[in-house]
Computed example of a mutant assay.
Amino acid sequence: MDDTPILVELREGYRVITLNRPDRLNSFNEAQHKAFFAAVADAEADAACGALVITGAGRGFCAGQDLSDRVTPEGGEPPNLSVTIETYYNPLLKKLRALPFPTIAAVNGVAAGAGANIALACDIVIAAKSAKFIQAFAKIGLIPDSGGTWSLPRLAGAARARALALTGDPLTAETAADWGMIWKAVDDDALMAEVTALAERFAAGPTVGYDLIKQALDASETNDFATQLDLERDLQGKAGRTPDYAEGVRAFMEKRPPNFVGRRKG
């Protein structure tokens, strides 16, 4: 078995990052943190990358932080978790959210703790029906991190967010889809085919336009209506000057599929 903590596969127009510590349910240690951040940064820097898929090896997506290096001896000095968050999790989540192309979490099994919230930070989450999302933090006396206290109320609503955070009870993929927390739950054996089809669609699409859509939706979290209208005006102006808009209009008038160039010339 490959002991590299992160596997990266370059496909036509997109990349697949696989968390690769299956014996630990892909939980994070320092090596995996560093490799994952580097892989995301490499994807961001690649003008030919039009989408990013994140998944896990084996039977889990990611169980969050590997707690084997967090055991404090009786009377010993506890670890400073603020340092871990500031050094690893926060930079990763900020970079992931800011990527200029669509991100897809292919949740193939348990997504717990930071693993759940990394998945929820992606633009689109598709999960196997056997997968579960667990805000496991309260069970060890912690609060949700990796954006959990931000994303849960927005995705699940205030009442459900509090219950998920305070109980740490597992949430099935199908219930998460019913609640609107994720895009969809699919049969386990259909997961990667579904994700691949979507990634290929994004890779062939107007990726500059996708970036502007993401910017607008992110800003809407804090903008008032009038401010958002102004932002739509400005971003639409940028979108209208891209080669993809001109091609999209020509293709529509000529009743043919568009041939977008995306970030390669956007």
Rank of each mutant, 00 (worst) to 15 (best):
M1C: 06
P5G: 05
V8W: 04
E9K: 07
Y14H: 13
V16S: 02
N20D: 09
P22Y: 10
D23I: 08
L25E: 01
L25S: 05
N26F: 02
E30P: 00
E30Q: 11
K34R: 15
K34T: 12
A35W: 03
F36A: 07
E44N: 14
D46Q: 07
A47H: 09
A48K: 15
L52F: 08
L52P: 00
T55F: 02
T55N: 06
G58N: 09
G60D: 11
A63G: 06
G64F: 11
L67M: 13
L67E: 06
D69N: 11
R70V: 12
P73G: 03
G76Q: 06
E77K: 13
E77T: 14
E77L: 14
P78S: 10
P79V: 05
S82R: 12
S82N: 12
T84V: 14
Y89M: 12
L92W: 11
K94L: 14
K94R: 14
K95H: 09
F101T: 02
P102Y: 02
G109A: 09
G109E: 05
V110L: 11
A112N: 05
G113K: 01
A114D: 00
G115H: 02
A116V: 00
L120T: 01
A121W: 03
D123K: 01
D123A: 01
V125H: 00
I126D: 02
A127V: 05
K129H: 10
K132S: 10
F133M: 07
Q135K: 10
A136W: 00
F137N: 04
F137S: 08
A138T: 15
K139A: 13
I140K: 02
P144D: 12
D145V: 11
G147P: 00
S151A: 10
L152A: 15
P153Y: 11
A158P: 00
A161V: 04
A163N: 15
A165V: 02
L166V: 08
T167I: 13
T167D: 14
L171T: 12
W179P: 06
G180K: 01
M181C: 07
V186R: 01
D188E: 11
A190P: 03
L191E: 06
M192P: 01
V195R: 04
T196Q: 13
T196N: 13
A197R: 15
E200H: 02
P206D: 15
T207L: 05
V208Q: 08
Y210M: 03
I213E: 04
K214N: 08
Q215Y: 00
S220M: 13
E221P: 00
N223Y: 07
F225I: 10
F225K: 12
T227I: 09
Q228M: 15
D230F: 12
D234P: 05
D234L: 10
L235V: 12
A239E: 09
G240W: 04
R241Y: 06
P243V: 06
D244C: 10
V249S: 04
A251Y: 04
M253Q: 14
K255V: 13
G262S: 04
R263K: 13
R263L: 15
K265M: 12
G266R: 05
